[in-house]
Design a protein around this nucleic acid. Sequence first.
DNA 1: TTCAATACCTTGTATCACAAAGTACAAAAA
DNA 2: TTTTTGTACTTTGTGATACAAGGTATTGAA
Lengths: 109, 109
Amino acid sequence: MENISENIRTQMRKGLLEYCILRILSNEEAYASSIIEALKGAKMIVVEGTLYPLLIRLKNQQLLSYRWEESTQGPPRKYYMITDKGREQLAEMDAAWNELVESINHLKK
Amino acid sequence: MENISENIRTQMRKGLLEYCILRILSNEEAYASSIIEALKGAKMIVVEGTLYPLLIRLKNQQLLSYRWEESTQGPPRKYYMITDKGREQLAEMDAAWNELVESINHLKK
DNA sequence: TTCAATACCTTGTATCACAAAGTACAAAAA
DNA sequence: TTTTTGTACTTTGTGATACAAGGTATTGAA
């Protein structure tokens, strides 16, 4: 645990990654690398070793599905898409997130 | 895990409890039960088994200190207070939280 | 056919929150 | 006095999550 400030951020992120993935996939299909890029764009840095198990988890919960697609450069890609059940879950997560923000704001007063 | 919605909230809270404790103690000294009450007021429900180890952890990191105080009803209480180092950490956590909120907002667009 | 690039996956570890217990103390009740 | 009740503090075991550091497989170019 070399960098304390990084650790704070890592811990705060916990439990929010699933939410972020669902949010990203609510707009478009994507495969792992493009999801990582999207997360980077939001400054939610994540490594492959974190993302892959997470995607598998979400797929097993039937919140995501995927299809294989050939790539022009390299091996085929697994494109993930959100399911109806995933959208329901996303709605719940939106609510949970909003409550969390309210909770923190309440403690800031 | 029986209640999925609860689990979502539990996971989202992860890493934020330390932040909440420091925020609460930034205004006033408090002992465990009163901290739990404050968290309840913000709808961040937490149980003793979570809070006590957390307080000990924060104390070992020298972000908190405490003093014993007699109680009119029951055994003495451990009143915790934030240290200077704790206030520095709190400032970092404020920044981390703000960035996190921005990250999520970014993904919502 | 070897190599580099890309994509996907697995294993071991640390951290955190919770559930469910237990210990210690003080004041009221028996 | 002894027992009970209420309050406060603590510990142990479990499950979930993110990360680091590896590995496997496919493709196309050198």
